[in-house]
Every structure is written in structure tokens, then in C-alpha cells.
Nucleic acid binder design. Structure first.
Lengths: 189, 189
DNA sequence: GTCTATAGCGCGATAGAC
DNA sequence: GTCTATCGCGCTATAGAC
């Protein structure tokens, strides 16, 4: 059952406002005003404010899960897998800059789907951890605490949505390449 | 005029709750309950909820500003400056894990001090950008888009508060060293 | 310094007219 | 599909007793 066009408009508008102020600080009246209708009218298309958050976060989390599934089963080196994941994050983030803010900052306000989200996130992290550990075992990656590598990569990838929209004339392919280099090869000459 | 002991307790309690749910979702009743008193009693020590947020964020932001001032005037290489900044972030973050969440996620809910905060943040970023650009000119840092380096480093450093508390037995000095290596030298063997 | 009581307001959501 | 009107509730903050 896919959302109607109007419902999609509401979700997109909500995501923009959620990014600016966070889920809790945005009111149904705010969302309605941004759409030039009254708050009560929103309920002809949606059931609750919570439903908006849930749709935004879960569909994105599933996109990441799908992308990870492809990467982890690919027959490529660990470093190549990490490069693919950088590209995955740049791609999803650049196409969902508003929604990424909710995924990162408002997941704790999920209700019915909180456990499902937490499972997706845990599985994603666990898969990334495995790739890093395998890379260390294979001598592709330096022998450092894998948790530090995991933390450093994920922090940067999860923050992409903050930086990508600032550079409107950004060449996505060039950016992906530069970011891969910085993350994997470091910055020291 | 420094805050009374009781006021400090309220601010610390508030910071813990703000980290869990965000400023907007935390009520004065929540803060009071965590302190085993009633919400009205809080107002004997503080003036408003906003004052709590403001104190948490501004004092932290000023710590970073002070730290940056020392680093940028030091007569050391650009790479050494970046190492010092990594240590600065690890140090402040590990001593202020709750407060860092507000700094990162709830600054937009500042009212009277929003402009002041934005100036501190902008200046900090500008100083870091200068260090990176100088490092590139000096041939210490690879010739890549400085914005990518800035973004990658700041994202990781700003997320430290999420990861540091998870590792209670963490050796801070070892962690700082590992993180510097990963950020500056990369992870590829 | 903490309490009870409450003012004044804004919230999410619903009912029912058009 | 949007509106007006409104319910019931929870919010920040204040008043005043103890």
C-alpha cells in the first residue's frame, strides 16, 4: 500500500521541518502552515504525527540495509567494500538530506517501530564491523582497534547530510572519490 | 556570578535528559522527577528551561574556543595542530558526554544566545579551515579539497560523545593516539 | 527550599459542515 | 479535501503556604 501523492507531500514537508527543529519541536500546525492548509486537514491523509516520523526513518533505514546486503555479499576486497559503502552513503544522503536528519537525531521518538529500527541499525553496524575486521586480518587495513575505525567512518558517513546540501554545485562523483581517499588513505603526505 | 551547587545539579540532570530525548521533548517535570522534587521547586534555583540549555551549550562552546586559541597560536606544524585538536575534542567530550549532545543537537533551540553561539561555531570552523589550508600549502597535507578534510574531521570529532561513554574501560590516551592515526594517516596499509 | 494549586497557553487529534 | 470549532491534556511558569 503505497502513500498517495498528497501524503508524500506531507511527509516531505514534515521531513524538512524535522531537520530544522527536530521532531518534538515541530507541530502539526507548523506542517500545515508550510502546506498552506489547516492542521485538521492533514488528518484526511495521515493518521498521526508519529506515522510521519516512522515513514521517514524506516524507509531510509531499509535503503541502507538493502545497500549493505549487496556490498557484503560482493566478491571484492574489504577496502573495495568500504569504498562502495562510502558511495552508498553519499548517494542516499544526497537524495534524502532532510530525511537523514530524522534518521540520525529523532529515532528515539519512534514508538511502535523503535525496536525494528534498532535491529536494522545494529545489524548494519555489525556488518560494517565484520568488513573492517576481515580487512585487518587480510592485511588490507592497518592493525588498529577496529572500533576506532568503525566509529570514525560511521561518524563521517552519518553526518554527510549536514554538509552535502551546502555545496549546491558539488560534483557528487568527485566528492565521493575525495572522501574515500581521505577516509581510507588519510590526509598526511 | 557562578551557579550555586543546587543549580549545577539541576543543569547536570537536565543535560543527561537532554541527551536522551532532546531539549524539546524533556519537560520540567522530567527534570524535577529525576531530582526527586516537584517542578515548581526548580524555579527557586533557576529562571527558565531556556537558561539550562543556554548554560550547557555556551560554556562548552567557550571551552572549545579557548582550546582553539591556544592551538592556533602555538608554534608547531599544521599536523601537530590537528593532533592537538583531536586531543582537545577527546578531552572535552569525555568530560562532558551529556552536554556535548546538546551542543550538537539542540543549539537551534537557543534564544537570546543563538547569535553568540553561531559566531563561536563559525570562528572555530574558520580557524580549523585555516590550519588545514596552511597544511596543504606547506606540503604537510595531501592536495585534496580542504572542505572534505574539514568535514570529515569535524564530523568525527563532534560525534565523539556518542562513542566515548560506551567504552567505560577506555584508555583515553591510547584512544586519542589511535584516533589521530586513523584521521591523519588513514586506515590503508 | 519545597510544596500545592493553578494560570495561561499550545499541543495532537476528532467531529461534523460544506 | 479543506474548513471551523473544540476536546482533553500537558506544558512552562507563578503565587503563596509552610
Amino acid at each position: 500500500m503505497k502513500p498517495s501523492q498528497r501524503k508524500i507531500e506531507i511527509i516531505t514537508t514534515a521531513a524538512q521541518l524535522f531537520k530544522e527543529k527536530g521532531y518534538s519541536a515541530v507541530t502539526m500546525r507548523d506542517i500545515a502552515k508550510a502546506m498552506h492548509i489547516k492542521a485538521a486537514s492533514l488528518y484526511n491523509h495521515i493518521n498521526s504525527k508519529q506515522e510521519l516520523l516512522s515513514h521517514i526513518i524506516i524507509s531510509l533505514a531499509e535503503d541502507f540495509t538493502t545497500g549493505m546486503k549487496e556490498v557484503k555479499t560482493a566478491e571484492i576486497s574489504s577496502i573495495e567494500k568500504l569504498k562502495k559503502l562510502v558511495a552508498l552513503h553519499v548517494s542516499i544522503s544526497s537524495n534524502n538530506t532532510y530525511e537523514m536528519a530524522s534518521l540520525n537525531n529523532d529515532w528515539m521518538h519512534l514508538e511502535a517501530e523503535l525496536d525494528y529500527y534498532l535491529k536494522l541499525r545494529k545489524d548494519y553496524e555489525e556488518n560494517l564491523r565484520k568488513i573492517i575486521k576481515t580487512g585487518i586480518q587480510n592485511n588490507e587495513i592497518i592493525d588498529v582497534n577496529p572500533e576506532v575505525v568503525l566509529f570514525s567512518m560511521l561518524s563521517t558517513l552519518r553526518s554527510l547530510y549536514i554538509w552535502i546540501p551546502k555545496k549546491e554545485d558539488l560534483d557528487i562523483q568527485q566528492f565521493t572519490q575525495d572522501l574515500s581517499n581521505v577516509l581510507l588513505k588519510g590526509i598526511t603526505k
